[in-house]
Simulated scan of single mutants.
Amino acid sequence: MLYLSIAVLCSVSVSVLLKLLRQADLDIRQTILAGYPIAFLLTLLLLAPDTAGIGSLTGTAWAIIVALGVLLPTVFVVLGRAIGVAGMVATDAAQRLSLIIPIIAAFVWFGDSVSMTRLLGLALGFLALIALVYRPSQPKDSTDAKTQNTPIANVSTLSFWLFAVWAGYGAIDVLFKQVAKQGAAFPLTLFVSFGVAGVLLFLYLLMQRPNWQPRALMAGVLLGALNMGNIYAYVRAHQVLADSPSIVFTAMNVGVIALASIIGVGVFKERLSGINMLGIALAIACVLVLFLL
């Protein structure tokens, strides 16, 4: 369980770092950019991708890799915005609930069988998302609003960013699965995708001509290490517990939701309504149903 614990800690630490960066008013895009060379090198060292296989990648595989190159940095930016608007607890839960998107894709596009258990899990997942985005009407008294510890946003804005996190991570999961089916090994796919993501984001920022922030760039070293630490530990957990993949999936997703909830509420004083707490419980139930039953 050591690797699973490391994966959970690294995943939640990414959210904590992004929240701190937003509180410090630093440009998260620059942090993400600086993180890609670190993740790129760590992928080479830790996962040892077969770089000789790059030449054998098909045109379809490259199209998917380029799509990943756009989505990977974009979803990180979206994650940072969602954490700023909705808080760590709801955002991490929405990220983990993205697991239902590849399951839906398996039904709709890839001919996978439909079962009552999976339908129950999907229903719980959607109910969890609805409960997570619920916010009671805000008080009109501005002095009361000042006591809030997270930015006050209307429900439509909050829903948009949580939905974007959910959809973005779900799309990335589907793309990785499709590349793997075409014969490209996961380490090679990750290696090339990190490289493409870093280059595209660098070109985008050059066109934007930002005010470069050394603190934001330095934070990228930590972000890249945490991101790669999460991926490496998760892969190693699957290797060590090869006979129990459902245990790995469940422990990872439930662990992240639980730890993010503890840190979000206990450290950052995020406020959750009873319905939001129900959403957390439904998210955990969704994971348990989909991977243990």
Rank of each mutant, 00 (worst) to 15 (best):
L2V: 13
Y3C: 03
I6P: 06
A7S: 15
C10N: 01
V16M: 01
L21P: 00
G35C: 04
Y36Q: 10
F40T: 08
L44G: 02
L46H: 07
A48R: 14
A48E: 06
A48I: 03
T51I: 15
A52Y: 13
S56I: 04
T58S: 15
T58M: 05
A63V: 08
I65K: 01
A67P: 08
G69R: 09
P73Y: 13
T74L: 12
T74R: 00
V78M: 04
R81F: 01
V85D: 12
M88I: 14
M88N: 10
D92R: 10
D92C: 07
L97N: 04
I100V: 15
I103P: 02
W109C: 01
M116T: 11
M116L: 07
T117H: 02
R118Y: 01
L119M: 14
L119Y: 02
L120Y: 00
G121L: 02
F126Y: 12
A128G: 06
A131F: 05
P136D: 14
P136I: 09
S137G: 12
Q138I: 11
A153N: 07
N154T: 10
S156K: 14
S156A: 15
L158K: 13
L158T: 08
A164V: 04
V165D: 01
G168W: 12
A171K: 03
I172H: 02
D173K: 03
D173G: 03
V174W: 03
L175Y: 13
P187M: 06
L188N: 03
T189N: 09
S193Y: 02
A197S: 14
V199E: 05
V199D: 12
L200Y: 00
R209N: 06
P210W: 09
L223Q: 10
A225R: 05
A225M: 07
L226E: 15
G229V: 03
A233S: 14
Y234Q: 06
A237D: 07
A237V: 05
L241Q: 02
P245A: 03
N253C: 11
G255S: 04
V256M: 09
I262P: 07
V265S: 09
V265N: 09
K269Q: 15
I275P: 08
N276R: 05
A281Q: 09
A283T: 02
A285H: 07
V287H: 06
L288W: 14
L290S: 07
L290Y: 02
L290N: 08
